[in-house]
């Protein structure tokens, strides 16, 4: 795995939701579990098994696979973590397939990039640009809006209710967030003091960092406010509010779904960041419209009990 982490990282959240990834994974499953197959190439296996569209057989292969498939070298850890994460959230029918699909995506993109490197050097793919030189590159808001709109539509077709939809969006955001966290931290350390990297361990500086620096690296500007809940017994709740959130800028949720906040995606990003920094929390998004800002959204962070206990033991 000599590939840069960012390029695989950026591909995964999208690719693992594409149906054809599932089929290619299935073919590799089968080739490793069927003993009497001749040493044919993967391509022919794929053709041979593609017609079988019986979902039960898919599931069976998927289950077998987790036993038979062996992942070489130190990527074991990464994949293990990821599939555990999938397993905790996804519904049971998808579970085996998604856990194994993430592994095949990694392998798939590795092969692909090796091929493209030798074939042509004419134009550098967006995903293959040098990691730290793209720091100030910006993405068109319109394209992002269309992409996110399709993500919402796609997800909406595959869920049973609003809370399920929010959970899925948050899950997608989590994938994005864990990568963004690594990228942002890395860039920060490289530009500040590469010899002595430093990380916040206290809660408040961490939250301020997320509200400020982290937000700025994702959305180009800081969040508008960071507050702590003043209600008694809810001292573990913090709120980050934005007046004009990026993702819901062009989305207005119909009345019958007023509970939904598509910013659940952002909540997922924040949750991943907090998780990665060692502050596990439950993060949700709520739309709190005001007269001037009809899209104003509050990201509610409810920190884990262990975090609050640790904070207390540190003292003030």
């Amino acid at each position: 795995m000599n590939q840069t982490p960012t390029s695989t990282g950026r591909r995964n959240p999208i690719q693992s939701f594409l149906p054809n990834q599932f089929s290619s994974r299935r073919s590799s499953t089968i080739s490793s579990s069927s003993t009497n197959s001749p040493s044919s190439s993967q391509g022919s296996n794929l053709n041979r098994f593609f017609p079988s569209k019986d979902p039960q057989s898919w599931n069976r292969f998927g289950n077998e696979k987790s036993k038979t498939y062996e992942i070489p070298n130190n990527n074991n850890n990464v994949i293990g973590n990821r599939s555990k994460f999938f397993g905790s959230g996804a519904d049971p029918s998808n579970h085996p397939s998604s856990s194994s699909s993430s592994s095949s995506v990694i392998f798939g993109s590795k092969r692909e990039s090796a091929g493209s490197g030798s074939e042509s050097v004419s134009k550098v793919d967006v995903l293959e640009r040098p990691r730290d030189r793209t720091r100030y590159e910006e993405v068109s808001n319109s394209s992002l809006a269309f992409l996110f709109s399709e993500i919402v539509k796609y997800t909406q077709d595959r869920v049973s209710g609003i809370s399920d939809l929010e959970r899925r969006l948050s899950l997608l955001g989590y994938h994005v967030g864990s990568r963004l966290l690594n990228l942002t931290l890395h860039r920060q350390e490289m530009s500040n003091n590469p010899k002595q990297p430093k990380r916040e361990v206290r809660l408040l500086p961490t939250l301020i960092w997320i509200h400020g620096t982290f937000w700025k690296s994702i959305f180009g500007k800081q969040a508008d406010s960071l507050e702590r809940s003043t209600e008694a017994g809810r001292g573990d709740e913090y709120m980050i509010s934005t007046n004009n959130p990026t993702f819901s800028g062009s989305i207005s949720v119909p009345k019958e779904m007023s509970q939904l906040s598509v910013e659940a995606f952002t909540a997922g990003i924040v949750e991943a960041a907090l998780d990665g920094l060692g502050f596990p929390a439950r993060v949700t998004a709520h739309t709190v419209p005001t007269q001037e800002h009809p899209n104003r959204t509050t990201i509610l962070i409810k920190l884990d009990k262990s975090v609050m206990e640790r904070e207390e033991s540190f003292g003030s």
Binding site: S142, S250, I251, S252, V253, P254, P294
Partner: peptide, 17 residues
Amino acid sequence: MKNPFYTSEMPIRVEAF
């Protein structure tokens, strides 16, 4: 057009619009 809850060619019921 960027709203995922709108079906094209159908009556427009979008508050922000």
